[in-house]
Each structure stands twice: as C-alpha cells, then as structure tokens.
Amino acid sequence: EDNEEPDPLPDNWEMAYTEKGEVYFIDHNTKTTSWLDPRLAKKAK
C-alpha cells in the first residue's frame, strides 16, 4: 500500500484556491504565485 504523506510545502509557501477552485501556490519569499507545485519542481530535477 502506498500511503505516502505528501511532502510539506517549502518554507514560506502557501497553497491557495482561486474563485473557481483551482489550486495555486504563493511564494511569500519572492511575493509571487505559481500554478506549479514547488514540491513537484524539486522532484523533476
């Protein structure tokens, strides 16, 4: 069984939802937002 907990978001990142219910990510370090999960970006490298 694969019950892995997702990795926590990096420091100062926040997950948020648009009015349409779409997930996006806020990077408080750089005051930017991203559609890409920063956790996935790390694994892709």
Rank of each mutant, 00 (worst) to 15 (best):
T18E: 02
K45W: 12
P8A: 11
W35C: 03
E4R: 15
N12T: 07
V23Q: 15
N3E: 08
D2V: 14
I26G: 00
D2E: 08
E14Q: 13
N3A: 09
D37P: 04
P10T: 04
D27R: 01
T18L: 03
P10C: 02
D11L: 14
H28R: 07
D7W: 12
L36D: 07
L40S: 11
W35M: 07
T30M: 05
D2Y: 14
N29E: 10
K43W: 07
N12A: 09
P10E: 05
H28L: 06
Y17A: 11
P10G: 04
E14A: 04
A16T: 05
K31Q: 12
K31S: 09
D2K: 15
E14C: 08
Y24C: 03
D2P: 12
W35E: 02
K31W: 07
L40A: 14
G21T: 01
F25L: 00
L36R: 10
W35L: 05
P10W: 04
T33G: 01
D27L: 00
L40N: 15
K31C: 11
E19R: 09
D27C: 03
E14G: 07
R39M: 02
F25E: 02
D27P: 00
D27V: 00
K42L: 14
D11S: 15
P8M: 13
D37W: 01
L36S: 08
P10L: 04
E1G: 12
W35Q: 05
N3F: 11
T33L: 02
E22Q: 09
D37Y: 01
K42A: 15
T32N: 05
E1H: 09
T18F: 00
D2S: 14
T32R: 06
I26E: 02
P6T: 08
T18P: 00
Y24L: 03
V23E: 11
E1A: 10
N3M: 14
W35S: 04
E1V: 13
L36P: 01
N3R: 15
K43V: 13
E19T: 13
G21D: 08
K31T: 05
K42Q: 14
A41F: 09
E19Q: 13
D2A: 15
K20C: 12
K31L: 08
N29L: 10
P6R: 13
P38V: 00
F25V: 00
Y24A: 01
N29R: 10
H28A: 04
K20L: 10
E1P: 12
K20W: 06
I26M: 13
T33M: 03
K42C: 15
T18K: 04
F25S: 01
Y17N: 11
K20S: 12
Y24R: 00
D37R: 08
T30S: 15
N12Y: 02
K42M: 12
S34P: 06
E19G: 09
T32P: 00
K31H: 15
T30D: 06
T30V: 05
P8V: 11
E1K: 14
T30F: 02
K31N: 14
L9S: 04
T30E: 08
Y24N: 00
K43L: 09
W35A: 03
N29T: 11
Y17L: 13
D7E: 12
N3K: 13
K42W: 15
D37F: 00
E14V: 06
T32M: 10
E22H: 08
H28G: 04
E14R: 04
H28Y: 03
A16F: 01
P8E: 10
T30L: 07
E1S: 08
D37C: 05
D27G: 00
E22V: 06
T18I: 00
Y24T: 00
D7R: 14
K42G: 12
I26R: 05
Y24E: 01
E4L: 13
W35H: 04
L36G: 07
P6M: 13
D2L: 14
N12W: 06
N3D: 06
P8S: 10
E1L: 11
D2Q: 14
W35D: 03
D37Q: 02
P6C: 10
N12V: 01
K31G: 10
D2R: 14
E14S: 09
A41L: 06
P10S: 04
K31E: 10
P10V: 03
A41G: 15
K20T: 10
R39E: 02
H28V: 04
E19I: 09
D27M: 00
F25Q: 07
L36M: 10
D11Q: 15
A16W: 02
A16V: 06
D11I: 09
N3H: 14
K42E: 13
E19P: 12
N3Y: 13
N3V: 11
K45E: 11
T32H: 04
A16I: 03
W35F: 09
D7L: 14
G21L: 05
D27E: 03
M15R: 09
L36H: 06
W13S: 03
T33I: 03
E22I: 03
D37V: 02
E22N: 06
D11P: 09
E22R: 04
T18C: 04
N29C: 08
G21P: 01
N29S: 12
D11V: 10
K42S: 15
P10D: 05
S34A: 04
E4V: 13
Y24Q: 01
R39H: 04
T18N: 05
A44V: 12
K43F: 08
L40W: 08
Y17E: 04
R39Y: 01
P10N: 04
I26F: 03
R39G: 04
P6H: 15
P6K: 10
E22F: 02
K20G: 12
W35T: 04
M15V: 08
A16K: 09
T32F: 00
E14N: 07
P10Q: 04
E22K: 07
E1W: 03
G21E: 08
E19A: 14
S34L: 00
F25M: 02
M15E: 10
P8L: 13
E4Q: 15
N3C: 11
E4C: 12
N29D: 09
L40T: 12
A16R: 08
D11N: 12
D11H: 11
A44Y: 15
N3T: 13
D7Q: 14
E4P: 15
T32K: 06
H28W: 05
D11W: 10
K42T: 08
T30W: 03
D27Y: 07
D11C: 10
D27N: 08
Y24V: 02
D7S: 13
D7A: 15
P10Y: 03
L40G: 14
G21V: 00
F25P: 00
K20Q: 13
N3W: 14
I26H: 02
Y17K: 10
I26T: 01
V23G: 09
D37S: 04
I26Q: 06
S34E: 01
I26C: 06
P8H: 09
T18R: 00
K20D: 11
Y17W: 13
P6W: 14
K43E: 15
A16M: 07
G21W: 02
